[in-house]
Amino acid sequence: MKELIKMQGLEKMYVNGDIEVHALKDINLVVNAGEFISIMGPSGSGKSTLMNILGCLDRPSQGRYFLEDIDISEQSDNELSFIRNQKIGFVFQSFNLIPRTNALKNVELPMVYGKIPTAQRNARALALLENVGLADRYMHMPNELSGGQKQRVAIARALANNPPIILADEPTGNLDSKSSVEIMQIFTKLNREKGTTVIIVTHEPDIAEFTDRIISFKDGIVVEDRLTEVGKAPKKEAY
């Protein structure tokens, strides 16, 4: 099985004047292509910090992070932008759609930065919206969509450049349980059918049960790393 993510002795410190926060301590983590993972842990335990580093939005203070064998700590800002654009799809708790910009344009955005020609990205954005069941809403502005719909647009956008990894920091945190289940079903389908690696952060155990593997954090340290019931099931191995 292909190693997609590898972290070695990774540390993250935040220094704000006199105050020093050791947000991640000696993280050693391997994620294979096609995994479906939940990251859990109390608030302030370093989950978002880890996701930001995984997503190449931030750099570790120490240690190494390899993404598809690329040493991220050696990359320039522009190279990191390119990696974010091509390899990573972000889904946020607060949706983070661009305001006053319709669903279609939001989904097109990563393709704009990826320099995909207009006609092509138009067609692809429409297809992606159709996949998340929002084909009829493509002209809607973010403020005209419900939370669940916004998150589906965000997922469509995250998939725009067909990245191998989806990173979702508390994607269901602002959603009701029905929408949460819908979102998790989309992630599951994505992971099962396309083999996309999906890593989500969640507080809710029943959301975590959708995934195959749960990594638990406490005070910046991995305290538990286990397979869920779904993850133990043999069908997973077939993939």
Binding site: G55, L57, D77, N78, S81, F82, R84, N85, Q86, F90, N96, L97, I98, P99, L109, P110, Y113, G114, R157, N161
Partner: peptide
């Protein structure tokens, strides 16, 4: 925030 979103989606400086 929009700038942050754009950067997360791959916008370069």
């Amino acid at each position: 925030r929009e700038i942050g979103i754009r950067k997360s989606l791959g916008a370069r400086t």
